[in-house]
Nucleic acid binder design. Structure first.
Lengths: 344, 344
DNA sequence: TTGTACGCGTTATCAA
DNA sequence: TTGATAACGCGTACAA
């Protein structure tokens, strides 16, 4: 019992292979009678079309590639993990598969993707880690590779040339700020990153907007720090802010937030039932600690990106960038109560 | 300037396409003179063989698949992240590619992998999360799919039918135990998991062996707890153990270890410069906190598994399981000093 | 509605 | 050493 092919099946059934092919790809062309007979034989034999042959003929591999980065801090890793999982899920539902790629620079990434594309192994790619003057999309598009990105094209005022989906970080920190304002806080600090990254600036802006909208004086915007993205740094930053009168904190990450939590606790500030601190990314560590955090809803992002990209891929030829429309997803604030470790 | 193919190149050069093919796949068959001429044209034109055509003809896709699990705790995720990255790296060096797959059960996983194999999309797969009575390897092998696993075949006394690589958890906890013994501790507790998993038992065994080898009385083996794998649980478990006289702890995970750290600190135990606590997996959180931990060396595991598996794949037909030999890698103990947060 | 014929790009087998 | 010929499995215009 070898695996059947289109021809072997057709032979056994006494029909042409074209008929079998039609039953699969254009059932309406086949007489119901023969169609059912062929269909039965197909399912009974467990026949599956060979993808290499399909790919060779249709000139598409139904495969996309995405680069994974070495886990630096374990935080970003957790978010990417979730994104990856749901991305693969969403793609599978539409007949696409995801190939993993590693690279040690953006140039290398372009090179690897281009190579795979020119060999016909992939139809498109998903970029992450968008940055100012990111030339990957144009370079790859020049090669004819379909491109999409998880992350907006920073620093571009014109409409982007590729499909992208991103999470509105500013909206997230603004929600966090408003949450703390509602809880009665007025001295809400912001713990940000040293490197003035676009993502970092975006998150800070949401905090600023929230304070301004609440009619707080301009000096409230001074209550902020910049540091590296580490627990220890968050602790130290929070100590400084506390001595400057802060009574709550919005943070650019969960690492910083956990450090701040420790500083608040040592200061003897009431943390029960809810700490006046909000993190970002809703890491497993946050949920384990009972820390409130902004959730990026990467599931929705993966789904949205997949929907747009596969739609674009299927109507291959014409209107390549017609619906290169963007989409900014609103993150959610997850409010938690601290575990018994922090009860007074 | 369209992308060249084997025929178009051959036409331009005035040779047969077979000659061009030979230059790439069997250079020794071609006269040096023509070989160089063809080679030059190949590189100049940027020609790349089409993988669909290659796959169709050679009946191999040079692609492997691996399932990713939804990140439950963020801990396991961090380890898998590292493994995945190095796996892709190692595979690429040998001409293989990795396809990602999701599934919601082991049966589903088998089904998905089988389907991709019968369509000719993959040549093999990498399994993780091995468990007792794991029938995935045999079921997949029955289908003709090449199988390897990161994780030993638990509960099988006979030689496994597939290639695998694993990390010797017991050796890791034993190293941790010996480290604490050298530091002068004699009441070394073990914080384990409730579910009597093979991995968990393995790690506990290393601690037991360490204590026995040190000649400690049998009652020393009583100083252990079982709980769920969470910070809070580790804290509570450690509190109980402390009241039973423990002065150090080996833990089955970093989550538990961090909880234990907090309990030790509240008890006023000296944690400077090094806490008498060792975690497992060497998570980013551990390195951020200055917690000593057992590192699984997943880089080595990925490399070793890839080496064995690709070797097996390349000599396809004969001796399918001839070198299904196993390999148990020894983890390393990473000793750290706590950050200034814990200085007295 | 069904069958015939060709092409997709490559590798393998021979014969020259 | 080289080149013609035949697969590999499938999709699709075209003819019947």
């Amino acid at each position: 019992m070898k695996r059947p092919t289109l021809v072997s099946l057709a032979r056994e059934l006494g029909v042409s292979r074209q008929t079998v092919s039609n039953v699969l790809n254009a059932p309406h062309l086949v007489k119901p009678e023969t169609r059912e007979r062929v269909q039965a034989a197909i399912t009974a034999s467990g026949y599956r079309p060979n993808v290499a042959a399909q790919s060779l003929r249709k000139r598409r591999s139904m495969t996309l590639a995405m680069r994974i980065y070495p886990t630096l801090d374990g935080i970003n890793g957790a978010v990417m993990d979730r994104f990856l999982h749901h991305l693969v899920d969403a793609l599978r539902g539409r007949g696409y598969h995801l190939l993993l790629v590693t690279a040690d620079s953006f140039d290398d990434e372009v090179e690897v993707l281009r190579d795979m594309h020119e060999r016909g192994r992939i139809d498109g790619c998903i970029l992450t880690d968008s940055h100012v003057d990111d030339d990957r999309p144009t370079r790859l598009a020049d090669d004819g590779l379909a491109v999409c990105a998880f992350g907006r094209p920073w620093g571009r005022t014109d409409e982007a040339s590729h499909i992208w989906v991103d999470v509105d970080g500013a909206a997230g920190t603004r929600k966090a700020t408003e949450h703390l304002l509602r809880a009665g806080h007025r001295r809400i600090a912001f713990l940000g990153w040293t490197d003035s990254s676009d993502v970092g600036n975006d998150r800070r802006r949401g905090w600023e907007d929230g304070l301004r909208a609440a009619g707080l004086p301009g000096e409230a915007l001074e209550l902020r720090t910049e540091s590296v993205d580490r627990f220890q740094a968050g602790f130290e930053a929070a100590e400084r802010l506390l001595s400057r009168g802060a009574d709550a904190a919005v943070c650019a990450s969960d690492s910083l937030a956990l450090g701040a939590l420790e500083a608040f606790r040592r200061r003897g500030i009431t943390l029960f039932p809810r700490a006046p601190i909000v993190g970002f990314d809703n890491t497993p560590i946050a949920s384990a600690s009972g820390l409130s955090s902004v959730d990026q809803c990467v599931e929705d992002a993966a789904e949205a990106l997949t929907a747009r990209f596969t739609a674009h891929l299927s109507r291959q030829g014409p209107s390549p960038t017609s619906e290169a429309g963007a989409r900014l997803l609103e993150p959610e604030l997850v409010v938690r109560e601290l575990g018994s470790l922090f009860t007074p």
